[in-house]
């Protein structure tokens, strides 16, 4: 079963099958993640969190691991992949 964080990212931007997503991966390192894809990504995350994302939380999301931590802290995900 695919990692739910990876699924969120792949729903926002089309990636090669062999592109490895790790928690250490910074968002700016994700290929073709342009502004519109970033908005899709934030919207996907936002919809999973009751009350939505604050601007500070959006700014704090710089890596895949931080997406995971954020969702886990809101009780929406296990902290570990």
């Amino acid at each position: 079963m695919e990692d739910p964080i990876h699924a969120i990212i792949r729903s926002a931007v089309t990636l090669d099958d062999d592109f490895a997503i790790t928690d250490e991966l910074r968002l700016q390192e994700i290929p073709n993640l342009d502004s519109l894809s970033q908005v899709r990504l934030m919207t996907e995350i936002d919809q999973r969190i009751e009350g939505g994302l604050s601007m500070d939380e959006i700014l704090a999301i710089e890596s895949v691991g931080q997406i995971r931590s954020l969702l886990a802290s809101r009780g929406k995900l296990d902290a570990q992949p």
Partner: peptide, 11 residues
């Protein structure tokens, strides 16, 4: 570099 998600531009 661009608009990004929007939040960096506001910042």
């Amino acid at each position: 570099p661009g608009v990004g998600s929007g939040a960096p531009l506001i910042k």
